Every structure is written in C-alpha cells, then in structure tokens.
Simulated scan of single mutants.
Amino acid sequence: GLGPEECMAVNPRLVYGRMTGWGQSGPLAPRAGHDTNYAAVSGALWGCSPADARPVSPFAVLGDIGGGAMYLMTGLLSGIVQARATGRGTVVDAAIVDGSAHMLNLMLSARQSGLVADVRGQSIHDSAPFYDTYVCADGHYVTVGAIEPQFYTLLLQVLGLAEDPDFTGSQWDKAAWPVRRARLAALFLAQPRAHWQALLEPTDACFGVVLSPVEAAQHPHMRARDVYSERQGVLQAAPAPRFDGAAYEPGEACAPGAHTQSVMEGLGQSGARAVWRQR
C-alpha cells in the first residue's frame, strides 16, 4: 500500500523515487542482483582492468553509487523542480543499469574518433602509455594522464625523455605505444613512489599517486580541503559538492536507524517506530 499510485493519490505533487538494479521493466526487472552484475550487463564493467586481466568491480561501487544513487538524486531534484513549477509530481525510475550505461557516453563518443576500440587493450584508457598506471620500486603505484600535447611534452621533459629516440615521434603513433609503455614502466620501477611524487606532483604533467583511503586522508591536498575526517574510529569523507566554497563537517558517527524515531516524530508520525519494527 505504499506504491506510487497510492501515495500520489494522496499528494499529486509527490516525487517518488524508485532505485533498482534492473529497472521497473525488462526481462531482468524481477531478478535479484548486485553492483557487479548491473555494471557488467550495462557495459560499464568491461573496461575495468588491463586487457590481460579479469574485469574487477571498482572499489568506488560504480553501479550502486555512480549509476544508481547519483542518478536517483538527480531525478528527485529534477522532479522537485517540476513539481514546484507545475504542481505535478513524478515517479523516478532510477535503474542502475541505465545510469551505468549513461556514464559510458563520453567513452562512446570517443569510439567514433577511434580513441576507444571494441577490443580490450586497444583504447586510450587501457593502452596509451601517457594515460596509464605504473608500479614503483616500493610496490606502490602512480598514474599519468598527459593526454593534451602540452602536458605530454612537459611529462617527457620532467622525466628526461624529451630527446629520447623512442619518444620523438607523434604522441598518437599507436605502433610506438608498446615500446614507450615498456620504457615508462622500467623508469617508474627504478624509484619509489615518493620520488616520483616529489618530482611530478608540483608540475602540470597530469600525475597522481595511487593512495588507499587511509593514505588519501593524510595527503596534503586532501587535508587542506578537509576531505576526510575520523570520528569515534570511523573514517569518512565529507559530503560533496560544496556550496559557496564551504566544506560541510560531518557529525558524530551513529548506528543505522538511530534518528528514525526523531525524524518520524518531526513528520507527525509518532507511532512509526512500532510499525517500522513490525515491517
């Protein structure tokens, strides 16, 4: 009795959000699933690894958060704008497969220009030596993303490769990419991560160290922006985006459902706790 038809009959301005994995229609709509399944079927999981490795679900939960929660939020906010303007609400069908597929549109547009191939290991994101992840002498990783020519030129200059015969040809000569990647891999492997961080991070060479969330919380940039905080032993990231440049400071960690009763009482539903427990 809590579906959109019943609720919107009481309040036609209601914006009713439905986030599911497979959506409200289609042959898989009644089936169970999880983030990795939705990302896989949507096409989003296909490129999430080197070509010679199995695709692995991104740690950031690409489907549930990216293709699901973010699109649900966008739909709800859009519906609220519509309801305020027209007095008419809407039902938001936020399917994780829809959102995960929609996030591929940038790569699909690059497919038209040849930057993305239909075979793994032959696209800019998984084969270009200037857009890749490299292991360092201490087993840690760094990333380079010098796509634009000015950044690529700077990267070669800082690494001492500007006059190297293996790098003097066109940046986009795919035939030269395997040799260049091997050269860069050997170079980064010769020094620990901190060395490359000190050398490249202060430049515009499009460089970034690969950090765990715990390490990221201690990075000078993340600390300066107060991105992470720890309360009661719980590490958490600050809400995003920011409004008027101000960071929102998270409150104390709490157990799931700790505020349900106070929220329901604020809505005039003082008896909600017993009903919630029964359901």
Score class of each variant (00 low, 15 high):
167 F>V: 14
197 Q>P: 01
154 L>N: 12
204 D>C: 10
124 I>F: 08
116 V>K: 05
180 R>D: 03
112 Q>H: 07
126 D>L: 00
199 L>G: 09
194 A>Y: 02
185 A>Q: 09
136 C>Y: 07
161 L>D: 03
189 L>E: 14
118 D>K: 05
185 A>G: 06
120 R>H: 02
172 W>R: 12
151 F>T: 08
114 G>N: 06
131 Y>F: 15
142 V>R: 06
144 V>W: 03
174 K>E: 12
203 T>C: 08
170 S>P: 14
164 D>S: 12
187 L>K: 03
175 A>S: 14
199 L>K: 13
135 V>W: 04
169 G>R: 11
147 I>S: 00
162 A>S: 15
188 F>I: 14
166 D>N: 08
121 G>Y: 10
178 P>Q: 06
126 D>S: 03
110 A>F: 14
108 L>K: 00
168 T>K: 13
163 E>H: 15
206 C>V: 14
127 S>L: 04
199 L>E: 11
137 A>W: 02
168 T>L: 15
161 L>M: 10
99 G>S: 00
110 A>K: 09
195 H>D: 05
171 Q>M: 15
125 H>R: 01
131 Y>H: 11
119 V>T: 14
123 S>N: 01
202 P>E: 11
149 P>G: 04
145 G>W: 07
109 S>G: 06
167 F>R: 10
157 Q>F: 02
98 D>W: 01
111 R>C: 11
132 D>G: 00
147 I>F: 06
202 P>Y: 13
147 I>Y: 00
110 A>I: 01
193 R>F: 13
200 L>R: 05
186 A>P: 02
177 W>T: 08
202 P>I: 14
125 H>D: 01
120 R>F: 00
171 Q>E: 09
188 F>D: 08
163 E>N: 14
161 L>V: 13
174 K>C: 09
202 P>M: 07
201 E>Q: 13
153 T>C: 06
186 A>E: 13
191 Q>E: 13
193 R>G: 13
126 D>H: 00
159 L>H: 08
127 S>R: 12
167 F>I: 14
155 L>K: 04
144 V>D: 02
198 A>R: 12
196 W>C: 12
193 R>T: 11
161 L>I: 10
182 A>V: 08
106 L>W: 04
165 P>T: 12
180 R>L: 01
97 V>E: 00
128 A>I: 09
150 Q>L: 11
205 A>D: 01
200 L>F: 02
174 K>H: 07
152 Y>P: 08
166 D>H: 09
126 D>W: 00
163 E>L: 10
